[in-house]
Simulated assay, not measured.
Amino acid sequence: MNKEYAVGIDIGGTHITAAIIDIVNMKVIDFSVQKESFDSNLPVNEVMSIWEKVIRTSVENSKVEAINGLAVCMPGPFDYTNGLCWIKDQSKYEHFYGLNVRYLFQGTLNLSSEFPILFENDAVCFGKGEVFKNAENLSKKVMAVTLGTGLGACFIDKGVSVSTGEFVPADGEIYNLPYKDSMAEDYISARGLLANYESLTGKRRNNGLELYNLALDGDEIAIKVFEEMGENLASVVIPWLEKFDADQFIIGGKIANASQFFLSAFNKKINESGIEIGVSISTDNEIAALLGASSMFYKG
């Protein structure tokens, strides 16, 4: 069988990761994973220079001669069809607002306008990547969430992302669902954890990692806020797990690394609801994102 390859690219607020993906077997090519951290608020040409270096190094290290396309995993808001960035007031990519990122890639990498450059939402990439990492999930209905600075979600039916219809929330998003006094993301995210900790202790913490380390050290309030986040997550997703008739629920994102403090509370509420579903924690968000992005070129 002929080999075909794409560059999988995971772009976050502070990093870019690229790898060459065998789009027939959906495998990462050895030695091709390349990552760099950077300040996304640098001028556009400086950011593009960093992206170019990472992508070219990945291709070079892979020893692959022909690339079929770029598959880019991007945070929103973003026009994924047309490649337009609408990120604004999020302390990242301040100079990219309104720009066509597809054109930026074409110019920076000297690519023709015919060369395929496809974009997808970061949470959808994660979910699809988790499906392709485990072949059993290709026959299932999977809901996946990413827990981090925000709350991402996707619904995958037999490997295909579903974002419309009565069985999923609008655009497949749950971050903006009404919940308690505001919306889901205000409770289920790093800022939600930090706000809850501050309300209970009067002490402000800098980030989720600091809170995680406190929990590891036995801080009972830190442990409590993770547990409450697990309960909140279950409350938000239960109606949609039922509507979508999901077989599997997958949790990713940086906060997933703290699952020892919230998973039991989450599972308890799921069990109480009577839902029977497999629940798992992603062991490699980054590779999942790269595979998920590249699945847009899947040749299987």
Rank of each mutant, 00 (worst) to 15 (best):
N2W: 10
N2C: 08
A6Q: 02
G12C: 05
G13E: 09
I16D: 08
I16M: 09
I21W: 08
V28K: 11
D30A: 11
V33M: 15
Q34G: 01
F38R: 04
D39N: 15
D39T: 04
S40E: 00
E46Y: 08
V47C: 04
W51N: 00
W51P: 01
E52K: 15
R56I: 10
V64A: 06
E65S: 14
A66Y: 12
I67C: 08
N68R: 11
G69Q: 12
L70C: 02
A71S: 12
A71H: 08
A71T: 10
V72G: 02
M74F: 13
G83R: 08
I87Y: 07
K88M: 10
E94G: 10
H95W: 11
F96L: 13
G98I: 04
L99I: 15
N100T: 09
R102E: 15
Q106C: 11
Q106H: 10
Q106A: 12
T108I: 07
L109N: 12
S113D: 15
E114S: 15
I117S: 13
L118C: 14
N121M: 10
G127H: 06
G129D: 08
E136D: 13
S139Q: 12
S139A: 13
V142P: 05
V145Y: 02
T146H: 05
T149Q: 01
G152N: 06
G152A: 06
I156G: 04
D157C: 00
K158P: 02
K158F: 03
G165F: 03
G165V: 05
P169E: 05
E173M: 09
I188V: 13
Y197E: 09
T201H: 12
R204Q: 15
N213T: 00
A215N: 07
L216K: 10
G218Y: 09
I221G: 07
A222P: 08
F226R: 04
E228Y: 12
L233N: 03
A234H: 01
V236E: 01
V237P: 00
W240V: 07
Q248T: 09
Q248N: 12
F249H: 07
I251D: 02
G252Q: 05
K254C: 06
I255Y: 04
I255P: 00
I255E: 03
Q260V: 04
Q260L: 04
K269V: 07
I270Q: 03
E272H: 10
I277W: 04
G278T: 13
E286D: 15
I287D: 09
G292A: 05
S295Q: 09
F297Q: 11
